[in-house]
């Protein structure tokens, strides 16, 4: 039975789709980490009582973050079609999914970064100021290193969300396991493909969570 079950699956396509998913996830995670951290730091620093306290900047940044965080991902992809075609030149393939993935995930991660930074002891920042540290030194040597475990566990959570986003992006032509499960599995009523694609996505998610947990535990000296 297992052999007949296996026969229904085009393994070559399955591997290509798996790598597309891994490719989309990794690039999106890296870009989200960068963009989200910048946005999160901006949100934190412009907040009341912090180093760059600035109500207009904070309000605008927070509004943008909230808007993009609230739009359902599948709608965001459609809204971003003109932007993506302008940027990538096409709406098809894994690279075309990246703008939507990053714009969808970065605001979510930015909030997690902000929460992580808020947990940094204000006294430590005061101590650094008393030592004559510049604002850049405080960001680079105090805020980010002290919040690092939160940043890492946050990017793990965001990464897992991103993997499921890639599946959604796949349905509208973005490639990867989601695309495969939809095109070859759902539309041709081939449940085996759907099943294997799901297992592979789960494996990617588990690996991501596992790496994230180990990393967080290693750097957390609290």
């Amino acid at each position: 039975m297992l052999s007949t079950w296996m026969e229904e699956i085009n393994w070559e396509n399955m591997w290509i789709a798996t790598w597309e998913t891994v490719y989309m996830s990794l690039i999106a995670v890296a870009a989200t980490f960068l963009l989200g951290t910048i946005l999160g730091v901006l949100l934190y620093l412009t907040d009341k009582g912090n180093m760059w306290e600035n109500k207009p900047v904070h309000t605008v940044t927070a509004a943008i973050v909230n808007i993009f965080r609230s739009i359902p991902f599948i709608i965001l992809i459609i809204l971003l079609i003109p932007f993506t075609t302008f940027l990538i030149g096409t709406m098809l393939g894994p690279s075309a999914a990246l703008p939507a993935l990053i714009i969808g995930a970065a605001p979510f991660y930015a909030r997690l970064v902000e929460i992580g930074l808020r947990e940094v002891d204000k006294g430590v920042i005061e101590a650094s100021q008393a030592m004559g540290a510049t604002q850049w030194q405080i960001i680079q040597k105090v805020l980010l290193p002290e919040a690092l475990p939160s940043l890492i566990s946050g990017i793990t959570v965001t990464g897992i969300t991103l993997v499921s986003y890639t599946a959604m992006a796949g349905v509208v032509g973005g490639g990867g396991l989601g695309n495969l499960a939809y095109q070859e599995g759902f539309q041709r009523s081939n449940n085996d493909v759907v099943f294997v694609a799901t297992v592979l996505i789960l494996v990617i998610v588990f690996i991501l969570q596992w790496v994230g947990d180990i990393w967080t535990r290693q750097i957390d000296k609290r």
Partner: peptide, 19 residues
């Protein structure tokens, strides 16, 4: 900032970087 480098400060809750 230069002047602050010549004034050390010790805190009630230590304020060390745990990382």
């Amino acid at each position: 900032r230069s002047a602050r480098q010549e004034i050390g400060m010790v805190f009630q809750h230590f304020n060390l970087l745990w990382s």
